[in-house]
Computed example of a mutant assay.
Amino acid sequence: MLPDKQFLIDLAHAKMPFGKYEGRFLIDLPEYYVVWYHSKGFPKGKLGDMLKQVYELKLNGLEDLIRNIKRQYPKK
């Protein structure tokens, strides 16, 4: 299932709410950290869904897609 437009806009502006990378945009998390979550298990809820999407984007080299969305749809 493909994510919807609003999910991608929200993802572009989402920041890590806790831990070593607290406050960093999810798309800017180091790849090894997202891979670690993939092997450990993503959190439940929207954060987990977003981290799963970040994993897929990084796996396919598509991080710039989210960075472009962030520029195109500035947070209000």
Results as ranks from 00 to 15, higher is better:
residue 58 K to N: 09
residue 9 I to E: 04
residue 44 K to A: 14
residue 29 L to R: 05
residue 74 P to R: 09
residue 55 Y to F: 13
residue 53 Q to C: 13
residue 41 G to K: 04
residue 27 I to Q: 04
residue 49 D to A: 14
residue 28 D to W: 04
residue 45 G to M: 06
residue 15 K to C: 13
residue 59 L to M: 10
residue 71 R to K: 15
residue 54 V to H: 10
residue 9 I to S: 05
residue 53 Q to P: 00
residue 40 K to G: 01
residue 64 D to E: 14
residue 73 Y to L: 03
residue 32 Y to G: 00
residue 5 K to H: 15
residue 27 I to R: 09
residue 20 K to N: 09
residue 35 V to E: 14
residue 10 D to P: 00
residue 35 V to I: 14
residue 21 Y to D: 14
residue 73 Y to A: 06
residue 16 M to W: 05
residue 52 K to T: 10
residue 43 P to S: 11
residue 7 F to I: 02
residue 29 L to W: 10
residue 36 W to Y: 14
residue 68 N to M: 06
residue 15 K to A: 08
residue 70 K to G: 06
residue 5 K to M: 06
residue 24 R to S: 05
residue 11 L to Y: 05
residue 19 G to F: 09
residue 34 V to A: 13
residue 41 G to Q: 04
residue 25 F to V: 02
residue 44 K to T: 12
residue 34 V to G: 09
residue 2 L to H: 12
residue 72 Q to E: 15
residue 60 N to R: 09
residue 62 L to S: 11
residue 71 R to S: 11
residue 36 W to L: 01
residue 25 F to T: 00
residue 66 I to D: 08
residue 65 L to S: 06
residue 18 F to L: 01
residue 15 K to Y: 03
residue 60 N to M: 01
residue 65 L to M: 13
residue 53 Q to W: 04
residue 30 P to T: 04
residue 1 M to W: 10
residue 56 E to L: 14
residue 35 V to S: 03
residue 38 H to F: 13
residue 32 Y to M: 01
residue 11 L to F: 10
residue 70 K to C: 03
residue 62 L to K: 12
residue 30 P to D: 08
residue 3 P to V: 11
residue 55 Y to N: 06
residue 41 G to N: 08
residue 40 K to W: 09
residue 46 K to M: 11
residue 56 E to C: 00
residue 59 L to Y: 02
residue 43 P to C: 05
residue 3 P to W: 13
residue 56 E to V: 01
residue 22 E to M: 05
residue 30 P to Y: 03
residue 74 P to T: 12
residue 30 P to C: 06
residue 13 H to A: 06
residue 62 L to T: 02
residue 33 Y to H: 12
residue 39 S to N: 15
residue 3 P to L: 09
residue 20 K to S: 07
residue 41 G to P: 12
residue 64 D to N: 14
residue 2 L to P: 15
residue 66 I to S: 03
residue 55 Y to T: 05
residue 51 L to P: 10
residue 14 A to E: 13
residue 13 H to K: 06
residue 69 I to Q: 09
residue 49 D to R: 15
residue 23 G to L: 07
residue 10 D to C: 01
residue 54 V to M: 07
residue 42 F to S: 03
residue 50 M to I: 01
residue 66 I to P: 07
residue 8 L to V: 06
residue 9 I to Q: 02
residue 7 F to Q: 11
residue 73 Y to F: 15
residue 8 L to S: 06
residue 7 F to P: 00
residue 76 K to L: 09
residue 5 K to L: 10
residue 42 F to C: 04
residue 33 Y to K: 08
residue 45 G to P: 08
residue 17 P to E: 08
residue 31 E to L: 01
residue 26 L to H: 05
residue 74 P to Q: 12
residue 62 L to E: 14
residue 71 R to C: 00
residue 63 E to H: 01
residue 28 D to K: 04
residue 17 P to R: 04
residue 8 L to E: 14
residue 63 E to W: 03
residue 33 Y to F: 14
residue 20 K to L: 12
residue 39 S to T: 06
residue 68 N to V: 02
residue 64 D to H: 11
residue 55 Y to M: 02
residue 47 L to G: 10
residue 27 I to N: 08
